[in-house]
């Protein structure tokens, strides 16, 4: 049980009459990389919004790092150690890399000055370099502002933020959807680095090759329910597609009258 980092039981979210997520039982082991796949509207993003505290579930339990949790907001989840890289990157365009990594949790001196306490740029720069080296992110200059960076570099900064704060779980929502070939490769390398360091990861992606390459397990969502839990080594891409489209359902997830 202590090897489990995240577990949900019967996680359910209704928006009015819409059952966006229904009875999701999901388990993630420490050091494991799991992909979440599914068609648009299958409930992937809804699931992520529940476990990152952006929304509160209608029913069900979330257990994180050995304790039951009920996040009131994304900050709660972040403090508990869940770092999410969202599709909208949540970076401040006019600030540079250390400013963005430490936004809202700056290293400071002279703390008796309250809101006017002094920023410790030296410490933040050193920590930023260390975090980027650790994740293998290549940035020509951390003093460059985000607006002057390519999409891939921005994505890397957003991902490096998770490494800076020794998060216990990283969640990436389609991190390469808007990137070119080379930039995608860079992001995938970072994900491999996280894997080698034993950092658990939930990856939402539509890219079958990427998922097969990077993840241990694939959980497929369909119409708000989990319909398959597959070991990436045991299945082919065609089979996964069959689960996504509804041609196949694993017996234990079959629900009468719904699918």
């Amino acid at each position: 049980m202590s090897d489990v980092i995240l577990q949900t039981r019967g996680l359910t979210k209704h928006y009015g009459g819409v059952h966006a997520l229904e009875g999701a039982d999901f388990t993630l082991m420490k050091g494991e990389h799991v992909a979440i796949m599914g068609d648009n509207g299958a409930g992937k993003s809804t699931f992520v919004r529940q476990i990152t505290g952006v929304e509160q579930p209608t029913r069900g339990e979330i257990h994180f790092d050995g304790a039951r949790v009920a996040f009131k907001g994304p900050l709660d989840a972040r403090e508990a150690g869940i770092e999410a890289v969202f599709q909208t990157l949540a970076l401040a365009d006019h600030l540079d890399v250390p400013d963005n990594l430490f936004l809202g949790r700056e290293r400071t001196k002279w703390n008796w000055l309250g809101p006017f306490r002094r920023l410790d740029y030296r410490a933040m720069h050193a920590d930023t370099i260390a975090a980027l080296e650790k994740t293998g992110v290549k940035i020509p200059s951390i003093r460059n502002t985000i607006q002057n960076m390519s999409g891939g570099q921005r994505q890397c900064v957003a991902i490096a933020r998770t490494a800076t704060f020794h998060s216990k779980l990283t969640i990436m929502d389609e991190p390469t959807a808007a990137l070119g070939v080379q930039e995608t490769a860079q992001v995938e390398n970072i994900i491999r680095t996280l894997k080698s360091q034993g950092e658990p990861l939930i990856l939402i992606s539509h890219n079958m090759r990427q998922v097969m390459d990077l993840c241990d397990r694939i959980v497929v969502f369909r119409r708000g329910r989990i319909c398959a839990n597959l070991r990436a080594a045991d299945v082919t891409g065609e089979e996964v597609v069959a689960y996504i489209t509804g041609a196949l359902t694993q017996p234990k997830y079959a629900v009468d009258g719904v699918l």
């Binding site: 994304p74 900050l75 972040r78 909208t88 990157l89 949540a90 970076l91 401040a92 365009d93 006019h94 600030l95 400013d99 936004l103 809202g104 949790r105 700056e106 400071t108 000055l113 809101p115 006017f116 306490r117 002094r118 920023l119 740029y121």
Partner: peptide, 22 residues
């Protein structure tokens, strides 16, 4: 050089990001 200044720039640059950052 202060947190006040940094947060002022952050809010003007991307208010949602500032809020998400706590």
């Amino acid at each position: 050089h202060t947190v006040y200044g940094k947060h002022t720039y952050a809010i003007g640059s991307n208010m949602d990001a500032a809020r998400m950052s706590g």
